[in-house]
């Protein structure tokens, strides 16, 4: 791929660099992230990106594997070798399975296969932020409700909803992966903790109660039988 002209934006302290050599894709990602209140730097060249990361650092990196200059994998390797544990989401093409595996082995936190939906990228960033205790998106909004991550408060139209702890955990998990199907196993793990000796069906009554609670606030929980549940704003 030909090197695209590099679009460098003013680097804020709390920046997510997007390292991509497809300029339109990089821009779209940057727009999306800025819309969510993140400061974003775009770097279209592997060497520049590596220098930038070594000097300024970042809170989270969205990294393409195919880059002019250093490849994404090389950047990732040198980051991890220097003890830089910044969360990294790799972008790969469908045909780069080997690279994907190599990327995860090198310490990438997640990967996305191009083309992907922006909701998916949002979800991955949300999940990663939580895992890494980053203070991205302290509040989440869906339908008419907002979820305050730090206080774990759920509000609808200014009033706080009184929801049991397990259902809050459930909502948190679904919210992180909204627009995607979350398996019962994932939900059980999130609600009861990893390795808890609980049957997957135990989650079902909690889900139906939560669904009822949220139905008046423009939020639905859809069921994919045999797979799991999906949270989505009602149109």
């Amino acid at each position: 791929m030909v090197a695209q002209p590099c679009v460098k934006l003013a680097g804020a302290k709390n920046a997510d660099p997007v390292v991509e050599d497809n300029e339109a894709l990089a821009k779209a990602i940057a727009y999306r992230l800025r819309d969510h209140g993140h400061a974003v730097d775009i770097l279209c060249d592997g060497d520049q990106a590596s220098a930038f990361l070594a000097q300024d650092g970042a809170d989270l990196v969205v990294l393409d594997i195919n880059l002019p200059g250093q490849s994404g994998l090389e950047i990732l390797r040198s980051m991890r070798q220097e003890g830089d544990g910044t969360p990294v989401i790799l972008l790969t093409a469908r045909s780069e399975i080997k690279d994907r595996v190599a990327g995860l082995d090198l310490g990438a936190d997640d990967y996305l296969v191009k083309p992907f939906e922006m909701d998916e990228l949002d979800a991955r960033i949300r999940a990663l932020s939580r895992r890494k205790n980053l203070d991205f998106g302290a509040t989440e909004t869906i339908g008419n409700i907002t979820f305050e991550r730090t206080t774990r408060q759920i509000k609808a139209g200014g009033t706080t909803l009184d929801i049991p702890r397990r259902e809050v955990a459930l909502l948190e998990c679904l919210l992180e992966r909204r627009g995607r199907i979350v398996s019962k196993a994932q939900l059980t793990e999130h609600v009861y903790g990893i390795g808890a000796d609980v049957d997957d069906t135990a989650i079902e009554p909690h889900v139906s109660r939560l669904r009822k609670r949220l139905s008046n606030h423009g939020v639905t929980i859809k069921t994919a039988r045999g797979l799991g549940y999906m949270l989505e704003a009602r149109n």
Partner: peptide
Amino acid sequence: VETTCADVGARILTQGIDFKVAL
């Protein structure tokens, strides 16, 4: 099958179509 269904299923559910998987 499970991963693929989870991937594709979201779009199917969004379209208001029931989606179920038996594994």
